[in-house]
């Protein structure tokens, strides 16, 4: 069993620049921040290294950090310019019983992250959900399509903080 601090040291030594930092998220969790394009490589290492054996991805969650500049339109609606989105990976080892939190932050304009669906199969659907709800594109994902919303939904990503309901959906007025 290893502490998050020790795992951070191991990762830092192995991957250097790709491991950005040790972020304190207050309350109970510490997260290791990883570069967006290195996450799959780090994932393979964490899963297969004989001392770490992180075989279980507990949860993959995406969120809108709401860090951009708020621009208010004339009709009272608003949107955020710039800002970041982040994806948080909770992973654990069922044999050694240690767990850590990884974090990847990407700018909203260019939200692209390497997929970990081939590392942990569980990520396949979770990444589709993150794409559907927040609009993060996962590179090299086997099937990057919407999952909960209709496949032809073109009104944006509902869990972004500046999401607006469309006026019409398939010719029907919303709210009807």
């Amino acid at each position: 069993m290893k502490t998050p601090q020790e795992i951070f040291e191991i990762l830092k030594q192995k991957f250097g620049e790709s491991v950005i930092g040790f972020a304190d998220n207050k309350l109970l969790e510490f997260a290791i921040e990883i570069a967006p394009l290195a996450i799959a490589e780090v994932g393979y290492f964490l899963r297969d290294d004989s001392e770490l054996l992180f075989d279980n991805l507990i949860l993959l969650s995406a969120l809108d950090d709401m860090t951009g500049k708020k621009v208010t339109e004339e009709d009272g609606s608003f949107r955020f310019e710039g800002g970041t989105l982040s994806v948080i990976y909770h992973i654990e080892s069922t044999s050694s019983r240690h767990k850590i939190v990884l974090k990847v932050v990407v700018p909203k304009e260019n939200a692209e992250i390497e997929s970990v669906a081939y590392v942990w199969n569980h990520a396949n659907w979770e990444e589709r959900e993150a794409f559907d709800m927040i609009g993060i594109k996962f590179l090299n994902h086997p099937n990057m399509i919407r999952i909960l919303m209709p496949y032809n939904w073109d009104a944006g990503y509902p869990l972004r903080k500046d999401y607006k309901n469309p006026e019409f959906y398939e010719g029907m007025k919303v709210p009807y």
Binding site: K26, L27, L28, E29, I58, L59, V101
Partner: peptide, 21 residues
């Protein structure tokens, strides 16, 4: 009014691990 931060807690639901992040 919880303090700023993030938390993940899980319980053993009849169907499996139910977690709230």
């Amino acid at each position: 009014k919880p303090p700023e931060g993030q938390i993940y807690t899980r319980v053993e639901n009849p169907r499996g691990e139910l977690g709230y992040f």
